[in-house]
Design a protein around this nucleic acid. Structure first.
Lengths: 136, 136
DNA sequence: GCACATAGTGAAGTACATACGCGAAATGGC
DNA sequence: GCCATTTCGCGTATGTACTTCACTATGTGC
C-alpha cells in the first residue's frame, strides 16, 4: 500500500523540476492531451471547482505555460491554450513517463507482466465499483 | 497508473468521514502506531517541517483528537498524545483499512495473490532505488 | 424579449506547507 | 559553574490549492 506514496512523491519530484506544482501540471497535462479547452471543461476533468481553475490558469499564464484565447463562438468562454514552452514541457512529461514506466517494468518476463496487469485491473475495477457506491 | 489516483481519493473519503483531513489523519496514524511522540519526531516521520507539525497538532487539539503532554525529561519538548476519541478513531481507521484490503483482495486465488504481491514488491524496490538516486 | 442557464471572476475563508527568526531549555567543553 | 552551540516549539509572513457565495456578461428556449 505504500507503493502509492512513493509513486506520488516521484511524480511531484518530476513536476518540481519543471517549475510546476502537481495541480498545475495536471491541468497542463489535460490541455496537452485534449488541445485548447475551456476552463469549464477543465474543472470537470480535474474534478475541482471552476473558480479554482481560474487560479491555476492564472498561475500558468504568469509563468508562460499557457495563454487564454477567445472562444470562436462563445464569447463568455476562454480557451486555455499551450504556449510553445507549454507544449515542450508537455512533451517532456510524456517522455519521462515512458522512460519511467520502462524502468519500472523493463525486465519483467512477458507472462509475468500480463498477470500483474490483470491483477491490477481486477483491483481497479473493484475500486471503481466502490467509488460509485458511495459518491462522496 | 490511474489506480493510484483512485486509491488516494478513497483514502480521503474515509478521512473526511471522521472529520479529518489527509495530513491530520497521517499524523494521528503515526501517533496511533508509535504512542506519544514529540513534534520533532513527527516532522521527520511525515517529512514536513516541524513548524507545520505545530499547525497540524493545533488543529487536532482543537478538535479533540490529541493533547499536548509535558515530556518527562525534556522541558522543551511536548508529547503528542491521543485522547480517548483519538484512539477510537485510530482503531476505526485500522479496521476500515483491513476491511478495505479484504474487499480488494478477497477473492484472489492464493497463487495469484502471491504473484501479484511479488510483482509489486519488485516495482517497489526499484522505486526506492530511484528515490535514493535523486534525493530531491 | 424575457426567464433561465452557463462561463468566468471577485471576495473571503480554510488547510497545508514553507522560510526566517525568536526565546527557552538542553548539552558539551573547559 | 559558565558560556557557546544545538535543539524544541512557536510567531510572523508568504504562497499554493481549494471551497462557497455573489456578481457580470453572455448564450438559449420559447
Amino acid at each position: 500500500m505504500e507503493l502509492n506514496i512513493l509513486l506520488n512523491e516521484d511524480a511531484e519530484r518530476g513536476m518540481a523540476q519543471s517549475g510546476l506544482t502537481t495541480s498545475r501540471a495536471g491541468l497542463l497535462w489535460e490541455v496537452f492531451h485534449h488541445g485548447p479547452t475551456t476552463q469549464r471543461a477543465l474543472s470537470e476533468a480535474l474534478k475541482v471547482t471552476s473558480r479554482n481553475i481560474t487560479g491555476l490558469v492564472d498561475g500558468l499564464v504568469a509563468t508562460g505555460f499557457v495563454t487564454r484565447e477567445a472562444h470562436p463562438t462563445d464569447r463568455r468562454a476562454t480557451l486555455v491554450t499551450l504556449t510553445e514552452h507549454g507544449k515542450a514541457i508537455g512533451l517532456t512529461m510524456f517522455q519521462q513517463q515512458q522512460e519511467f514506466a520502462a524502468t519500472l517494468f523493463g525486465d519483467f518476463a512477458e507472462g509475468e507482466l500480463d498477470t500483474l496487469v490483470a491483477g491490477l485491473d481486477k483491483i481497479l475495477t473493484r475500486l471503481r465499483g466502490l467509488a460509485q457506491a458511495q459518491p462522496d
